[in-house]
Design a protein around this nucleic acid. Sequence first.
DNA 1: ACCTGAACACCGTTCAAGT
DNA 2: ACCTGAACACCGTTCAAGT
Lengths: 187, 187
Amino acid sequence: MSRSSTAFPGTSRRSDALRNRERLLEVARELYAAHGTDVALRDIAERAGVGVGTVYRHFPTPEAMLEAVMSDRFEALRVGAAALADAHDPRAALLDWLRTLIADLAEYRGLPSSSLAAMNDESSQLYRSCHGMRDAAEVLLRRAQQAGGIRPELRVGVLLRLAHALAMAEENVELMLSMLVTGIGRS
Amino acid sequence: MSRSSTAFPGTSRRSDALRNRERLLEVARELYAAHGTDVALRDIAERAGVGVGTVYRHFPTPEAMLEAVMSDRFEALRVGAAALADAHDPRAALLDWLRTLIADLAEYRGLPSSSLAAMNDESSQLYRSCHGMRDAAEVLLRRAQQAGGIRPELRVGVLLRLAHALAMAEENVELMLSMLVTGIGRS
DNA sequence: ACCTGAACACCGTTCAAGT
DNA sequence: ACCTGAACACCGTTCAAGT
């Protein structure tokens, strides 16, 4: 009993398309790393050896490309936050997590800026796509607040925006972070 | 004894050029206000009724245009900081000044972002042109630090970057500012 | 000395034509 | 179903030709 070819029409082509997608993501990561987040989709297409239209089929906009590249990181950050959710020291856990976030944002030139812009624009795809990580961070924040280590008025959105600002500075991150902490910390 | 025409060659033309410059600045301000900081120099040229080349003659780059528009504000901020330099309460003076800065940054959509980017790039014209204001702010900061109201490790650059982050948030500025203050404040 | 606007390179985006 | 690449709109930037 052969599987109906209409159940998965064009399967081989679909897998080709999937390989194209993976290849494009790979190339995008390379070019982001080499030239920052502002590379042209045309350049990604050329380097991947496909037509521009193919890029736009998979990633209808430069932001969609960035979002696809970043979604792995967002997921890793979400998982990392979840793993820290029952740490002994909730405030230290939050800070560790913030350090990871900032380090990730610093990986590609232009990323903190793009990401911060997206975070101020609810219609952005990046904004929606990082909500999982954001929610996980919120849990971390709330625990730290309940433990009395962090001020109760602080909201995740505000905290993430400030973290982005630190990531943009690129230098003195640890100093700025400690400054921020003494700001939001209670003791 | 007529003034040598070679001393100020083409004086009348120069004043025309000056008027062009003023007109371009005026139009730029209008378009910034209407459409944000990302307007095309071509659009400014068209609306001002001059050729693109004229815009580039006066402002060789979009950033130069923005810098020219902002330099008045920078100057006003510098003067404002100087006026507050001998206030009774140095910490309150610093905070007042920060509020003004943030309000100014919020005037044009896209300005906080551009300005923050410039502040992270020493080769930027905006970076150099806002140094007067920056220095004046530094005096304000130092006085507040000497009075014991602000942590001594805080540096102007860091403070300004954080102020920009607050301006980008556009909402809850007062809350974020108070959070920041309790962070950098000592008492 | 200054202005004009055509021209070029470049990027985002679309779509008719192919397979 | 997916891919290609020409084509269009748009923006930054330059420069030969005008006055």
